[in-house]
Write a protein that binds this DNA or RNA. Structure first.
Lengths: 294, 294
DNA sequence: GGCTGCCCATACAATTTGTTTGGGCAGTGA
DNA sequence: TCACTGCCCAAACAAATTGTATGGGCAGCC
């Protein structure tokens, strides 16, 4: 899978003609045709229909032009970032996933303040990969995230200490009018709308791995909204937009009050750990870690 | 630039050793070394330091591991999407700041679904600059964000249409035990703990510009936590960690129930607009824009 | 019917990439 | 100090991939 195939394909989309696209790419038409064919082989599907004297571009390709452009652009960015790397960055900086930031961090902050009343935090919220990046780069001295229970923890060097704040679990919930769609047996129709996680998101991976219904697109007949942002999913489920999987600690008040109904009895729950990683060479981080982690 | 180089590099990052990485990739070590060298040539910089009997991985590469993984994942997604293309699905990709994602988007989604029952959303949450980047790159066809009222809107090309979903405002609130610290005149001691926004964040800029007390570090005697993540701030204020500024639409239920107390009467409020930008060349985006924006 | 444009197949040339083999260095233990 | 092991590399050659040139077939147009 050569990235220049993507440039080929984009040129073909612009020209709509193999010969002219080949010219623009400075190769002969048969070589260009070969490249397109290679791309199709990699995809496992045709993206153009070859007629005797013209081609038809398949809608699958047309509708993904923007995504291809984004990929190419992103690769260019990566190149620049690596090539122009800058190694330089009495407050604890923490890279935290959005979900624990809303769900468990407030309690963690209270605990820390009870031991260190003067302590301050500078939070860098983001998705897991961004948080790991921040932590690895030394932008933050701690990392707070959810991990699937029993999963292999993130691997860092010997200076990084992992601790566990506690347990939590993802539960499927419904709110709004959808609460009344629940059958007597605590089930929902298969085509019930779902607010799903992207499969490459942290929660998406957990739910996908165990084929949780309504967790990701692959296991939802009617995914009306996809986002990795669980606070947003909470609001959407409260409004009855669909079934959503939320950390229990983020939903328990609404479950208690009846604004959300848990379907964990029927659809299961995904056990997680709240993991805290600290750079042990940073004194303050090590001290807070000792308070938080067991 | 062969995409399998990225897999090679990721394997190398995992193994930290050319020989083992080569084994895992089912090629010989010299071939593997060649590939890494090819990648370095493409990058225009070295990513490893080759010592006689070991390698050191450059921090530039270490800190971009997550990005490389994301790229690889995204390419896999593209492949799946093209291969399993469904012409009937109509999904709108929206780059949204976290705050409107939690506060106004659920209502927006309901409105859109009432007009287009089959509509689906793919949300890309992030801070403002990341969202703008996504939108500019064509990753999403819409952008949802808060803007200070009266501020100059974001500038895009002629194909981008701006609309306003409605108004909102940032209000200072306290919760937990801090509710009882309010004086008769609706004031708080100057050194009351504050949950502040970074000055370079969108909300931080609004509050800083008008010197709002407890809004940013500069105007807080005791900033115990700094984060741009307003959903997290809501939770922290509920626990009584400090004063926090929140979009009214995100706090009104808690203010109604008494869990949070608004200090807007004394400290003021920061008026905002909920802005929606759409790429008018994308039919679906234009259609939804017409429903949402006035 | 003749002409043009456009895509393809085939044979061959050129380039790229993998393997094998031998070499050098660093670290460890006796 | 010496022998051994692990690990990365250079060089030569083999294998695979990719580009070029050429001839062919079809559709559309005048």
């Amino acid at each position: 899978m050569d990235m220049q195939w993507l440039d080929d394909v984009l040129t073909l989309l612009e020209e709509g003609n193999m010969t002219r696209a080949a010219d623009r790419r400075n190769i002969t038409q048969p070589a260009f045709s070969r490249r397109i064919r290679s791309f199709e082989d990699w995809l496992g599907t045709d993206i153009i229909e070859r007629k005797t004297n013209r081609i038809d571009i398949h809608p699958a390709l047309l509708s993904n032009e923007a995504e291809i452009r984004a990929l190419v652009s992103r690769l260019r960015e990566l190149r620049t970032k690596i090539a122009h790397y800058d190694p330089n960055a009495s407050t604890i900086a923490i890279a935290a996933q959005h979900a624990p930031m809303s769900s468990t961090f407030p309690d963690m902050a209270l605990r820390a303040k009870s031991v260190f009343p003067q302590i301050r935090f500078r939070m860098r919220p983001g998705n897991l990969s961004d948080c790991v990046t921040l932590f690895l780069r030394g932008d933050t001295s701690m990392l707070l995230c959810y991990e699937a229970e029993g999963a292999v923890p993130l691997q860092f060097g010997p200076d990084v200490v992992r601790g566990r704040w506690g347990n939590d679990y993802l539960v499927p919930v419904v709110g709004g009018a959808l609460r009344y769609a629940i059958h007597d047996t605590d089930t929902l129709p298969d085509d019930t709308p779902a607010i799903v996680y992207p499969e490459d998101s942290s929660f998406g991976q957990m739910l996908h791995r165990h084929a949780r219904p309504f967790g990701t697109q692959a296991f939802s007949a009617n995914p009306v909204c996809e986002t990795a942002f669980s606070s947003g999913i909470r609001e959407l489920t409260l409004k009855g937009l669909g079934v959503g999987w939320l950390p229990f600690s983020m939903a328990y008040r609404e479950i208690e009050s009846g604004a959300l109904v848990s379907l964990a009895n029927r659809l299961g729950k995904e056990p997680m750990e709240v993991a805290v990683y600290a750079d042990s060479t940073v004194e303050a981080a090590a001290a807070v870690q000792a308070v938080w982690a067991k």
